[in-house]
Design a binder for these strands. Sequence first.
DNA 1: TTGAAAGCGCTAACAG
DNA 2: CTGTTAGCGCTTTCAA
Lengths: 361, 361
Amino acid sequence: MVTLADVARHAGVSASTVSYVLSGKRSISAPTRERIQHSIDALGYRPHAGARALASSRTDVLALMMPLRTGLYVPVLMEIAMAVTTTARSHGYDVLLLTGEEGPEAVRRVEGSAIADAMIVMDVGLDDPRLPHLRAAERPAVLIGLPTETAEAADTEGLDCVDLDFEAAGARCVEHLAGLGHTAIAVLGEPPAVYERGTGFAARTLTGFRAAASSHGVGLLHRPVDGTYAAVAAAVTRVFEERPGTTGIVVQNEAAVEPLLALLRHQGRAVPEDVSVVAICPDQVATHASVPLTAVSVPAQEMGRLAVERIVRRLEGERSGGTELIAPRLTPRASTGPAPAPAPSSSPSAATEDRRGHGGH
Amino acid sequence: MVTLADVARHAGVSASTVSYVLSGKRSISAPTRERIQHSIDALGYRPHAGARALASSRTDVLALMMPLRTGLYVPVLMEIAMAVTTTARSHGYDVLLLTGEEGPEAVRRVEGSAIADAMIVMDVGLDDPRLPHLRAAERPAVLIGLPTETAEAADTEGLDCVDLDFEAAGARCVEHLAGLGHTAIAVLGEPPAVYERGTGFAARTLTGFRAAASSHGVGLLHRPVDGTYAAVAAAVTRVFEERPGTTGIVVQNEAAVEPLLALLRHQGRAVPEDVSVVAICPDQVATHASVPLTAVSVPAQEMGRLAVERIVRRLEGERSGGTELIAPRLTPRASTGPAPAPAPSSSPSAATEDRRGHGGH
DNA sequence: TTGAAAGCGCTAACAG
DNA sequence: CTGTTAGCGCTTTCAA
């Protein structure tokens, strides 16, 4: 193995000089620098990561905690992971992948063993058991997600968070439909398991849906669904029985998109003439669906990139930056249109919540 | 930070004794061991990964090279990655995730910087530029995939490989259909890009398709397709124009599965009465398809697990284990049945290759 | 069964 | 602008 000492000898300088050429932490005369650089190339020298970590207390590694739990849409996670590794590399960092359910234990492991300089934490839950450990930890952490139901109630003290503003995203979807005259809307949400474990983004989106429905006087039904045709069919069928006047559907569940469109087709409901559909999903899914979908895009890449940039800044000494929410962007496509002529009478009175009807349909 | 020296002091022993308790590399009297263990717990000691790596030349990290290139089905990759991290943890290893197109450079980086003890390499191409570097490297590597078109022609000297036997898998699909009396078969393959860059598994499957078609006297058309409805429709339509007698379709492209089934439905071709469909895909996809698919399953988890177990054995001193192919398992489901009554005359003469017909249809 | 001590390869004062 | 030197925390001979 080629060591720094080898390079120093080869170049006829001291070890520290070589080290400083590598780190750039003090100025070296052009001639020596070139000579050293030449020796480095000639010998094919690479600094030993462990030695460097020991001496400098920096590993140049970021830990990515990505528990892959049921109900999550894998391609989005993967896209985030890719963006994280790519961005990290461009800043000189490698990425250690932590999946699995180690939870708090993994946090302690990273911290205690100095395995990574910082952590990026995904799939954040409302009462995430990792958070106390993250706050207590020396190393900085950034969450992709928020551990709260609303952006305001952010119990985010000492934690950096990056995420899509799902609350605004949910509201935006409802607003879009309300603006087109729809007054009865159904939401096909993430699988039940996702809500049950209190996943932050799902909870926040729901908050947004409800707030917008309330303020626009729109009726709203919310149905978690697994991403199977059967589950979607059951949910949608029930929705139309319970609220025959439903003309707008918001779907926040990538796996449910095609089943939904197939079902509507099957039921003879035209999109968007009979039913308008808005999705919250990656652009890729929205544009490739069998009907191009009006959608708020989930900017997976941007989330990964922002998280890394945030953490890198913190590692460079910057103070905690609090919460950074990406503003939702809704792109109108072929799946939404004006509400069809309404049934004879109707007098939408006030806000409406799940399973609590409001008069008029 | 709690160091080994702290523990030693706390327990009233020397540093080396603590180290040996941790590594178990020499016998320690029960009393001292317990005392030390108690100190470790009391102080919350964790060995410093960098220091350990420096002193022992072992990092307890495995590098996973997973370039995410276009045309690959992400959930399968993710499943492999998960299996890798999980299995690795159960053996005491962490996983460093390398995506991106660094290729050979990444291999050198891992090797030179002693960043990981071994590498697991995915998305192996026929003439993969990383291979020479892997052979030259000190650290062991295992490929998930084969860099060859056939299992025999394995230019696998000094490389460990783990994979599904895609060649046998391809053959198995054709045999299954041939056994049901189908004599004209079409293959919907991976996206063109996958073949163009010489991805090993796609090439090997094709080899298997062709060999089986040849030996069973079955006509075979092969069409790479992107996973879009339009691409599938174009390919299938052309197939039925070129070989109207086609009654069997093999699909090796997860994204094309639903578009294919939708198209057949749309064309009024019943599955399996008019057309039998066999897939090569994860069980998950086969069972959740709108028609449960007869399929050779892609055992993503098993591949990841085997790769790690293989590499762990090598790190423990075992010699290179060569190539290990998982035997394909075809599960009959609802998508295949006997070939429909054939057109009046036919005299299948001999083997048939892509785009070269054989008489009788 | 335990200790003492010499590094592993690098960084970062401290000196010049 | 460059060299000297003292560790970083752990493993592992060599001794006892």
